[in-house]
Design a protein around this nucleic acid. Structure first.
Lengths: 340, 340
DNA sequence: CTGTTAGCGCCTTCAA
DNA sequence: TTGAAGGCGCTAACAG
């Protein structure tokens, strides 16, 4: 392995000079810089990151923590897409991106400990947010930089987070259905423990209210994310005495199940029932019919969170921020106009 | 930050003793071990990874390189699932998993350089395999440990890789269709530049041949992976004068498009046309009808590749291996029996 | 069984 | 503008 010393010797300067050249220190003459750089190239020199990190007390790396039910959750195309977003900025700033490889709560905690205590990463991005989360608690204790993608359960004003305005999104998409003449609109969401669900649902309710439509409890269902996701919910909806003409579904992935169950029952979308959802994951284009959905700009969620985190890691006094990524409606074929 | 010295001082021993306790060196008395560990706990000591890596000349981390068209490819649930598999063993062995965050060929190359030269990782897993790949070329030059998930284009006997027996898988699933009485079976695959496609297609052809069925060129289509994937292919197939009664599709994701396009044309699956595919990604359960598909055990592909890589990284003289992950057919609802 | 010494590769005072 | 010296935190001979 070629070290700074080898370069120094070969160029006839001291190691410290070489080090300064690496840092592009202005107090080194252009002349020696050139010479040093030349031998660096010739000998194929590359700085040893560990040595560098050791003295710098940082690692130019950020960690990404996935939700604990990683087995299933990672299946949601949401995650790869955030990772891409994060990756775009880590790459640009020459940071490394370390993925937590833990599968359950305990494992996550131990990974986080290693990452934090071992100074493996300079900061953490949490792709989830839970009530009573030991991880965030720990990070707060340690005063370790982190940002949350989504809405934090606690300390919402002191922890930097990147989120969508899910309430407004829910309201807008529901309003869109109402504008198309729908009056009985159901809601199928993921777990009510997730803020995304809650917020989108609240938006849905607000739109109903604003339009003077009744907010019927039986019209609102909650379901598991994957697998059978949405199927039983559809059954309940179809069994309603007053059958809805539209459904707001809180996640494209759930919509997949919804659509398939609807088809199974011979219900045509959008003729009989319209469906809208959220995320605009690539799947929503492939379904029959293609889904009208809210594009939440997942990539951007990732990119912004990485940016915010790096800023915070490099400058501890950086204030906490709330970053709201705008959304928009992608109109496709899953909604029909209703004459009333 | 608490260091080894602090512990030494507080316990009244030398730093090296503390270091030995860390390594659980048997030549240290249980007694002092206990004492040292106690103060470690009290002072909240945690080893500094960078210092350790510096002397160990390793980093207990492996890098994962995604295909360059990461934007789209990452969308295939295949990738998250391999990552999970990799993660399971990196976690178990206390390795970190570093994700390449590059988006295109050049970026990938520069990331790889950084990772390799900077000793950022001890080895690399490539989740792709390309002809004339500068990355593998570079890694060979540097004699840097890596393993490929899939089939290498070159040096197949000297590079460790983890793959399925795609030929046999293709043959088996096709044979299954034949056994169900199908005689006109089409094939829709991804790019012919990918070995997966080629191998699965070759298996398909072998099965046809074995059954004495004609191998018709027009029955074999190739398509882009995502988006419209499979849609045009279906159109060509439906236009065939002798319309096939079954289709072998080389990837679940493509099947999604195939299914949707079929439905659009009023073709019933499996009554009119049967469909089978590969990978057994969670989507294949959600579709209508649920897909009969080959489970290639993606998780295991990841896990085994990580295992092989770590072994190789820890012991350079470890020989190159080819590891074939077994597959099996998951029978669901997309195939019908044909009376002939 | 334990301490002393040296060194991993780099950066950063302090001096010149 | 450059060099010498010391140290980041840890490990690994070499002694004893």
């Amino acid at each position: 392995m070629v070290t700074i010393k080898d370069i120094a010797k070969a160029t006839g300067v001291s190691p410290s000079t070489v080090s300064r050249v690496l840092a592009d220190n202005p107090r080194i003459s252009e002349d020696t810089k050139k010479k040093v750089r030349k031998t660096m190239r010739e000998l194929g020199y590359h700085p040893n990151i560990h040595a560098r990190n050791l003295v710098a007390k940082s690692s130019k790396a950020i960690g990404v923590i996935l939700p604990s039910s990683a087995d299933k959750a990672l299946q949601n195309p949401f995650f790869p897409e955030v990772l891409r977003g994060i990756g775009s900025v880590t790459h640009e700033r020459e940071y490394a991106m370390v993925l937590s490889s833990a599968q359950n709560g305990e494992e996550i905690m131990s990974e986080v400990r290693r990452m934090v205590f071992g100074r493996y990463v300079d900061g953490l991005i949490l792709l989830y947010s839970r009530i009573n989360d030991p991880v965030t608690e720990f990070l707060n204790e340690q005063d370790f930089p982190y940002v949350i993608v989504g809405k934090p359960y606690e300390n919402i004003n002191t922890v930097t987070h990147v989120d969508n305005d899910n309430f407004t999104a829910g309201k807008e998409i529901t309003k869109y259905l109402i504008d198309q003449g729908h009056e009985y609109i159901a809601f199928i969401g993921g777990s009510r423990e997730l803020f995304v669900t809650v917020d989108r649902e609240a938006g849905y309710e607000a739109a109903l209210k604003e339009a003077g439509l009744p907010n019927i409890e039986e019209q609102k269902l909650h379901t598991e994310f994957l697998k059978s996701g949405g199927r039983e919910a559809v059954e309940s909806i179809l069994a309603l005495e007053k059958r809805p003409t539209a459904i707001v579904v809180s996640d494209d992935l759930i919509s997949l199940g919804v659509l398939s169950r609807l088809e199974q029952s011979g219900v045509n979308v959008p003729e009989d029932i319209s469906v809208v959802s959220f995320n605009n994951v690539y799947l929503s284009e492939i379904t029959r019919p293609a889904l009208t959905t809210i594009d939440i700009h997942i990539y951007e969620l990732g990119a912004q969170s990485a940016k915010a985190l790096i800023e915070k890691a490099e400058n501890k006094s950086e204030p906490a921020k709330r970053i709201i990524i705008p959304h928009d409606i992608i109109y496709r074929d899953s909604v029909s106009k209703r004459e009333s």
